[in-house]
């Protein structure tokens, strides 16, 4: 479980997050949604410890990570995996070396054990046999899956995904969503996903937090999204004319 308590973040004179309190539950896909500029990425970076909040605390179970030193934070980070928007795979390393990197750095496993673990996670993301390829030789969807494989290779307790579907076709996007959700449920991970993809919201939104201009304006799950009459939520969900027509047609029926 991750708990954000009254998180505020300012850059100069601009306050980007204005006192956000929310609990991200374990074993669930926790989504942070909102329009561009709402503060989603800043919120995610604060949760993962890349930014320090101006005020407020972030708790990983019973540990207040906002008060930790850099060294202590690094220990906590062994339990954290993150999938970046651009996958952030190291270009000069092969797929296997990319995934093996945290194992090489932090474990004393033998090369054979590490290779076996790499093959396990590659199999989990349905990407067997790409070990020797370089990231540039793989597609965007494959890179996302390699990114997922790298983020789960150390068996994290917390998984963070920044716009996991951006730049992907709808079918691949669904595949990535399903993969993240399955991994979350299988391993009882606390997964936090930053997205504005409506398919993700309706597909894997177990616990959704809508940010608007730096404030938390709505929380709920995918079922409650359709039932809510919150104006900001409705404006966000049905921003596209296509979805508006579908909604109007459903109401008319």
């Amino acid at each position: 479980m991750i708990r954000a308590e009254n998180i505020r973040k300012s850059f100069g004179e601009t306050e980007v997050l204005k006192g956000i309190t929310h609990t991200f539950e374990s074993g669930k896909c926790n989504l942070i949604i909102g329009r561009s500029g709402a503060g989603k990425t800043v919120m995610l970076k604060i949760l993962v410890g890349l930014f320090q909040p101006t005020s407020g605390n972030v708790w990983y179970n019973d540990t207040n990570v906002s008060s930790l030193t850099k060294k202590e934070l690094r220990q906590i980070r062994m339990q954290v995996g993150m999938l970046f928007q651009g996958s952030a795979l190291f270009d000069s390393m092969t797929v296997e070396e990319n995934i093996r990197f945290p194992l090489d750095m932090f474990t004393s496993k033998t090369l054979k054990e590490k290779k076996n673990r790499v093959n396990e996670v590659l199999e989990r993301v349905q990407l067997e046999g790409v070990n020797k390829k370089y990231p540039s030789e793989t597609s965007g969807g494959m890179q996302k899956r390699i990114g997922i494989a790298r983020s789960i290779v150390m068996e994290p307790k917390y998984l963070f995904c920044d716009e996991p579907n951006s730049g992907l076709d709808p079918k691949t996007a669904l595949l990535i969503d399903e993969l993240i959700a399955d991994i979350t449920y299988e391993n009882n991970i606390t997964t936090v996903i930053n997205t504005h993809d409506m398919n993700s919201v309706m597909g894997i939104g177990d616990n959704i937090a809508l940010l608007h201009l730096g404030k938390l304006v709505w929380t709920g799950n995918k079922k409650e999204v359709m039932e809510s009459d919150d104006e900001l939520l409705q404006a966000f969900i049905f921003a596209s004319p296509f979805l508006q027509r579908l909604r109007d047609a459903a109401i008319a029926k």
């Binding site: 410890g49 890349l50 952030a88 990197f101 750095m105």
Partner: peptide
């Protein structure tokens, strides 16, 4: 710029 440094930081690398 490609967030490689952030990725390493999150893994726990100094």
């Amino acid at each position: 710029q490609k967030e490689h440094i952030d990725a390493m930081e999150i893994m726990g690398v100094n």
